[in-house]
Write a protein that binds this DNA or RNA. Sequence first.
DNA 1: GTTCCGATTTTCT
DNA 2: GAAAATCGGAACA
Length: 197
Amino acid sequence: MVRLPRSFYEGKATEVAPELLGKVLVRQLAGRRLSGRIVETEAYMGRIDPASHAYRGKTARNRVMFGPAGYLYVYVSYGMHYCLNVVTDAPDVAGAVLVRALAPLDGVEIMEANRGRRSVIDLCNGPGKLCAALQITRDQYGADLEGEEVWIEDDGCTLDGMATSSRVGVKEGWELPWRFYVPNSPYVSKGKPAKAT
DNA sequence: GTTCCGATTTTCT
DNA sequence: GAAAATCGGAACA
């Protein structure tokens, strides 16, 4: 079990996102270990990506994306859900990888309690869901992935395969193939098929 | 200061 | 399949 070093995150979001598939996101919570294998990610490329929060420049909300790699970017979506991102790329280059789905590993009972006893498959198969299951909130904004709250491990697990598609739920830039997922995993969010109008 | 909207999820018909 | 829930932050005046 190897914790990913900061250097792992220093590449471009589009490079780090597929690399994160199969890795294990670990959340240390009150002495308990919650973890899940990452099965779905999306890349957001700051200034060149109209779907990114950082597209319009640095703000109070997205400032962590303009900092060094290896930190968490957590934001509130639709006023009621949190989404967890990993900051990538060099300082001043706003890159981030959205973790969209996990296959639960450790602490499933705690996740079930946090999520209101849904089926295991529904625990973490969506960005807002996994944050609820792992109790990721704004308190984790800017958390260091080399710290003691949240980090990502590589347990050497090999992937069944990888697929890409357009990103889910974005208005702009949906045609970019920056969503990465494990095709055989039942834990990948269904998402809505990218619809072209 | 005010208005508008979203990298979503859940629930109802 | 469709709509509501709900609020922080970005955009505009």
